[in-house]
């Protein structure tokens, strides 16, 4: 660690530092500006252009949101379904990712492109054929059906990113451990898996969000029996004044900050920090 600090200090001249500082400030404004502007609207009665201060303050929009009881159930559904989807996705995809990253087999490249292409097909063109298929399989309106449709969106993340991570684990490290008498499984667990873990973690986060945010397919398969948060929320946001969207963004910011905090603790803590750092 001390070594790294040294190499860093050497490489930065004041000019470069200043330029990068300006770049960072601009980025902060670009990312946070719209969110903050929206967030303030959650407490505002009305805002007349071009004033920099709103006309008045209110809690009115918050009470309107909490009066909607369907929302609570949909958030709970989302929080139950998404973890199931991620775990299933890991079980199905991680072996495939390992194979794609470390082994050679017939159609390996076709496999990777095929998954990619399938993910990029605009879903709206498929509503009718997916509905027909799901009806034929009695999956319409079932939890299993919703899980499958969300699972499909996570496959791309759970194969490509871990595949790259497995591919980048140095072979000679594993061989050295084998030479030292470690079992195959032990080498996999303590070296291969551990070194690929940062990539796998990114894949888990991306898969969770892909499943959590999936709205169109979930509605097609789930409604009216199963609603998840986005299917419920998207419509609300589109139909209410900007202040309601602001309340939502604040409500969502809370778990998000929590998620970032948790992810940071797990990712930074321990050995993983070497490969993947969010400090």
């Amino acid at each position: 660690m001390a070594k790294r600090e040294k190499s860093r200090a050497k490489s930065s001249s004041p000019v470069v530092k200043a330029l990068l500082g300006i770049f960072m400030l601009a980025m902060a404004f670009f990312i946070l500006g719209p969110l903050l502007w929206l967030a303030i609207h959650a407490f505002v009665t009305n805002w007349t252009y071009p004033n920099l201060y709103p006309d008045g303050w209110t809690w009115h929009w918050w009470t309107q949101i909490f009066a909607n009881s369907a929302l609570e159930e949909s958030i709970r559904n989302s929080l139950i379904i998404s973890p199931i989807v991620v775990v299933l996705s890991m079980i199905i995809c991680l072996p495939a990712a390992y194979a794609a990253g470390r082994m050679n087999y017939v159609g390996r490249k076709t496999f990777l492109i095929g998954l990619f292409a399938a993910n990029s097909f605009p879903k709206i063109g498929l509503f009718a054929s997916i509905a027909t298929l799901y009806y034929a399989l009695n999956l319409m309106g079932t939890i299993v059906g919703v899980i499958i449709i969300q699972l499909l969106g996570t496959i791309i993340y759970m194969t490509w990113i871990p595949a790259a991570a497995f591919a980048s684990v140095p072979r000679n490290l594993e061989e050295a451990a084998r030479d030292a008498g470690a079992s195959k499984f032990r080498v996999f667990r303590t070296i291969t898996l551990r070194m690929a873990m940062p990539g796998i973690l990114v894949a888990i986060v991306m898969s969770f969000l892909a499943s959590f945010d999936e709205a169109q397919g979930t509605y097609l398969v789930g409604a009216p029996a199963i609603y998840t948060m986005p299917t419920e929320m998207y419509a609300l946001v589109e139909n209410y004044p900007i202040q309601i969207a602001a309340v939502f963004s604040l409500l969502l910011a809370f778990p998000s900050v929590l998620l970032i905090g948790l992810a940071r603790k797990h990712i930074v803590g321990g050995q993983l920090a070497e490969g993947f750092q969010i400090k």
Partner: peptide, 25 residues
């Protein structure tokens, strides 16, 4: 390509997500 020889095990490991995607997408 990582290994010189073609692996049957690798092909089988890659099958589950592929079949899922082939069938449902």
């Amino acid at each position: 390509a990582k290994a010189p020889r073609l692996s049957v095990v690798g092909f089988l490991m890659a099958l589950p997500p592929l079949l899922l995607v082939l069938f449902f997408v």
